[in-house]
């Protein structure tokens, strides 16, 4: 294993993350927690878009459903966070499974629009179903307590997020190298061919949507606890753009890249606080420059320059085709008539 290979770098990041609460201030801890939550979102979306090749625009809505689910179960049914949180993720997963149905009929830009329409519909429900969601004003969630552990809420939540993220990153790594991951890639690279190989499109598309819904749901639950507040603004199309930016910047169809992409985008957003008033311009320009000069994102760059960043879809050995750009290209042709 190369010294600066993927595993070592991710491990170093994890160690840094674990030590962070001992030397950062409360603002930096907040940002660190934000990064961890976005890592989850980034991975979930990358499995759906990068691996399974489904150009979906509903990730922000799933994130919202996780947050609302977790928050509302606590507020309406008095459930403790420990129960509401997993249930929220289950709700997001089932909605993810449900929206995979249109994906069987449409693909490419049509899928983009139908999922976008679904996301707008979800936001409409958040805004209008006032007796349940409290409408546009949002609602406060009860503060999470980590008793009897001797940690404050922000620190406890940070470690909870970090542990979950670590587990889910490892899980995702293994998933994309399993039969399921390879089936996703086959669906992405050609539905007809995949079907002729005996891959059940319905099953694998639904699975990809479900998994991304689950990751987004977990992220949403953590996010609601972080803010102690849930309102519709957080789950709009800007949020969606951030998610897309994370996987493109990090590297499409790369788990390591998703992690780095989340770091990069949150760091960029917070860093841009320094250029007051022109954040939008800087954010847009950096995004464009990045896409132009770093095709394939950070992951592809590292694969070219540093040893140990290949992410084979098989456990044994490197892939027969070492061209990293080819490995990182989803079914764009399918989307372009």
């Amino acid at each position: 294993m190369a010294l600066f290979g993927r595993r070592n770098i991710l491990l170093a990041l994890l160690l840094l993350g674990a030590a962070a609460p001992f030397f950062v201030n409360s603002y930096q801890l907040f940002v660190a927690n934000l990064i961890v939550v976005f890592v989850l979102l980034s991975i979930g979306l990358n499995i759906l878009v990068g691996y399974a090749g489904q150009l979906a625009f509903a990730n922000a809505a799933m994130f919202g459903i996780g947050a609302y689910g977790t928050g509302l179960l606590q507020v309406h049914f008095g459930l403790p966070f420990w129960m509401a949180f997993p249930l929220g993720a289950v709700i997001a997963t089932s909605v993810g499974l449900a929206i995979s149905l249109p994906a069987l009929r449409v693909s490419g830009l049509y899928l983009a629009l139908s999922t976008l329409a679904f996301a707008e519909f979800t936001r409409w429900v958040f805004l209008h179903w006032e007796s349940v969601t409290f409408g546009a004003g949002g609602f406060k969630t009860p503060p999470v307590s980590f008793e009897p552990l001797p940690v404050s809420k922000p620190v406890g939540l940070y470690y909870l997020s970090l542990i979950l993220a670590t587990v889910l990153v490892v899980l995702a790594q293994n998933l994309v190298r399993s039969r399921i991951g390879r089936a996703f890639v086959a669906v992405r690279d050609g539905e007809v061919a995949a079907e002729s190989l005996g891959i059940d499109l319905l099953r694998y598309k639904a699975l990809a949507f479900g998994i991304s819904g689950f990751y987004a749901g977990i992220a949403g639950g953590l996010y609601s606890a972080m803010l102690n507040y849930v309102s519709p603004e957080g789950y709009d199309l800007f949020q969606m753009v951030l998610h897309k930016a994370m996987i493109v910047v990090g590297g499409i169809a790369s788990i390591g890249g998703s992690v780095l992409g989340a770091f990069a985008v949150v760091a960029l957003l917070e860093g841009l606080r320094e250029v007051k008033g022109v954040q939008e311009i800087a954010f847009g320009a950096i995004l464009v420059v990045f896409i132009l000069f770093m095709p394939g994102g950070i992951a592809a760059f590292l694969r070219r320059k540093v040893r140990g960043w290949d992410e084979p879809v098989h456990r044994a050995g490197p892939p027969p085709n070492p061209d990293p750009a080819a490995a990182a290209r989803p079914a764009s042709e399918a989307a372009r008539p």
Binding site: S26, F30, Y229
Partner: peptide, 13 residues
């Protein structure tokens, strides 16, 4: 809301 919390934490801390 999330960004506002971040902004206020940054200003204060």
């Amino acid at each position: 809301p999330a960004s506002a919390i971040g902004a206020v934490k940054k200003l204060i801390h």
